[in-house]
Design a protein around this nucleic acid. Structure first.
Lengths: 225, 225
DNA sequence: GCAAAGCGTGAACGACGATTCACGCCAGTG
DNA sequence: CACTGGCGTGAATCGTCGTTCACGCTTTGC
């Protein structure tokens, strides 16, 4: 044998791989999914087009990994926020607020990754992502319902996806008012949305119960794009 | 002069134009936005590819018109359902139900036209479409709020888009349960969603008030694809 | 220092799909 | 009925990417 990957090389390769993913992420954040093109992404990463294919078998795979990564991060954010909450209801509130907060931090990115579609292949991954979000959310709903905190008539199979849709559309969808750069209005929007979701689930007096205040602004600082 | 369009010819041209739009619509319903390709659409319409360009300056224009048409139809459906309702609250319920009902009738089509994105050009039109839906919906909310039937704290600018999102995602989004062919379950899903929306707006006891029953199944028979 | 094995390169290739256009055909005109 | 001009055609054209690959350069092992 005459060649074996050194620790140093392995590290370099891994770093390069991350660079590519980061470049792709940046591209998405700037120009949406359509902006993820091999040559531009490669340039952004400071490498040649062909090199991308040393790390990813195809563009589809690259995009898939991007979406999966982002999705996992969101689900994790949600889960953590919920776990840190003192009870099932505030867990829901916290989850919504955390997700909303993050989404607002980079609306275009979030929208592109979760909302905007791509080829059929990628569609499956995105579907899995939404399903994961809805699933996690459904779990929170069921927990609260089981604890008698929500009207029992809930059908999480319908409400969870619908509310995920409400969050997506309400905050990051193309409809959302332009609040990108205004922290105060962002906070406001997230709160409105949180209240909306709670009401939708049958919690009429969330504000009175102080469910909103305690989740007002979960510091989300990790993993900046 | 040696040529002037006869009434008959004008009619034929208009019909052809509609044929093209219909063919495009069918294509969308079958394979999503991606399936709207000039040659296949032309074949479907029984004409040559080049002919499409006698009627539409570009594919983008064709798609735009398709989306606008569909959008206008939906907004109109919503408005009419609301107007026929006996009061502001049932107007909201009726609007949601009517929209949901129609969307379910051809989920793939609805999703492709409203949910699934396309190129930047088309994005603008779709944005306008969603905005129109949200606007109409916002109007209903404001009316109800003004009548003191909803908590005054509503901020339609946030809730209307969010609830449009909830409807889209909950019923026709990729996550929605597969209920295409089961009328009973469709009815159920629409009702759940209607209740969800009403609750989200602060109406806790919609069912008790009989708001749901009266909109149970607005016969939507007009304009089949 | 030398051979072996990856790694990086970027021009070239291929697929796909929108758009064009030179040519017949048919309907309207007088 | 002959003539005119728009309509329909569909093969060819053009652009836009994703993907490949033959060729150096770099790193590793001895």
């Amino acid at each position: 044998m005459a060649y074996r990957r050194t620790e140093r090389v392995i590290r370099r390769l891994a770093a390069r791989r991350e660079d590519i993913l980061a470049a792709a992420r940046d591209a998405v954040a700037e120009g949406g999914m359509a902006a993820v093109q091999i040559v531009p992404v490669a340039e952004r990463a400071g490498i040649a087009a062909g090199t991308v294919y040393r790390y990813f078998p195809s563009k589809t795979e690259l995009v898939n990994e991007l979406v999966e990564q982002a999705c996992a991060r969101e689900v994790e954010t949600m889960r953590r926020a919920a776990e840190a909450a003192p009870g099932p209801l505030s867990a829901i509130a916290a989850a919504v607020a955390a997700l909303g907060q993050r989404a607002l931090q980079n609306r275009k990115l979030a929208w592109a990754l979760i909302g905007e579609p791509a080829d059929t292949e990628t569609g499956a991954v995105r579907h899995a992502c939404r399903a994961a979000l809805a699933g996690e959310f459904g779990r929170l709903i069921r927990t609260a319902a089981a604890a008698g905190l929500l009207p029992a008539e809930q059908s999480p199979a319908v409400t969870a996806p619908a509310l995920v849709g409400a969050m997506i559309e309400g905050l990051i969808g193309p409809l959302a008012p332009e609040i990108e750069s205004n922290p105060a209005r962002q906070r406001e929007a997230v709160q409105s949305l949180t209240l909306l979701v709670l009401r939708a689930l049958g919690v009429a007096d969330a504000r009175a119960r102080g469910l909103v205040v305690q989740i007002a602004l979960p510091a989300v600082t990790e993993g900046a794009a």
